[in-house]
Design a protein around this nucleic acid. Structure first.
Lengths: 199, 199
DNA sequence: TAGATTGTTAATCGATTAACAATC
DNA sequence: TAGATTGTTAATCGATTAACAATC
């Protein structure tokens, strides 16, 4: 039974050991006084809390470049998110194959969700279609949506939506870049709020 | 000169009006007592702080499905991130056209970065290539990198890297889903830390 | 001048962490 | 038993916000 102290765990995680002990305790994960925490026990219970010990079958909606990239990405399966189905509405795409999966018409969504136990839908369609697709997805009983369009979705309570917006990511990136450059030049917008502020 | 009060701005932003006044003040953005803040003035100066009033020419490395999806995405240009070049190393891809851009060999990167004034490189290659590409990008003088591979990159000080990992996004999504489901069932991992904790 | 609203101080709130009694 | 380390209390720190003097 390999044990580690909260001090060791905290150093790995880059946090204070008191904070770590308190957080594990709040999750119902206990250690042994004088000994430490059992590694396997911590891993298993943290995994339970994060939902990592479970598989979340995924369906990708939209078989364009982005959709195909997602289906081809082996990393998803490795991390517990196997892509089990791909949908589109274009007759040119329905019936084609992507990474061993045949693209199906969106009409078949409810059926496939039920039989495959789909828990996550990834929306990789043009923005105009996003809300309609979301409605279909929710109607089919999928409880979680990852939205790659720039539009925000309206969904009923209980459905969880997360948006990944490429433009926003670039915005954040360029903000940090600008800030570090500004600091080099002696500007101090955020880096030193106490200093003099330029106009 | 259209003015709004900190109260109005705070309501829009969903924050407390004292916090808003204090934050604007820290950014060097002032209002007029008894009147409020000049809308144009606030927009312009917040834009300056965020770097939104500037264009950040982008180069996409990797002309696979993900790379092509990024080049095709019109939203980037609209938000100030025009994609000016696409690179790959595969002879099958170099010379082909994506959204009006001819895919160039990665060897030409330094030249193109200089002539086009590229400020952001998006890495959309297989994970194995990511570090080599990052080295090339940094060598060419690009100061910001958006990394779509699952691997984390080592870069010199001053280069800003941001990673977008699809598996991590799904992880976060499924965590929230699980938490809301657990709450429905009466479990209380995070929703009510004061309550009894299940084992 | 009277009313409104900023800019900032002082009070409050919550989160982090030092410290130590409990206990393996 | 002596040493180590947890679990938690109490102190500290920082961030948020109420309140109000300054002032347009």
């Amino acid at each position: 039974m390999a044990s580690v102290s909260s001090e060791q765990l905290a150093e790995q995680a880059g946090v204070n050991s008191a904070t770590l002990r308190r957080d594990l305790s709040a999750l119902g994960i206990g250690g042994t006084r004088g000994v430490g925490y059992d590694v396997k026990h911590v891993l298993h219970h943290v995994g339970l809390v994060l939902g990592v010990n479970q598989e979340w079958p995924v369906s990708v909606i939209g078989a364009g470049n982005l959709g195909r990239a997602l289906v081809n990405y082996a990393g998803l399966s490795e991390r517990g998110f196997p892509v089990r189905a791909v949908f589109d509405i274009s007759p040119a795409k329905v019936g084609t194959e992507v990474s061993g999966l045949v693209v199906q018409h969106l009409d078949r969504l409810p059926e496939v969700v039920a039989s495959m136990g789909i828990l996550v839908a990834v929306i990789a369609t043009p923005g105009e279609a996003a809300q309609d697709v979301a409605d279909a997805v929710v109607g089919a009983g999928v409880p979680s949506i990852l939205n790659f369009t720039a539009d925000s979705l309206h969904v009923p309570e209980g459905v969880v939506v997360r948006r990944v917006d490429l433009a926003t990511e670039l915005q954040i990136l360029s903000f940090y870049q600008q800030r570090s450059t500004a600091a080099d030049r002696g500007f101090q917008y955020f880096t030193d709020v106490d200093g003099p502020v330029p106009d």
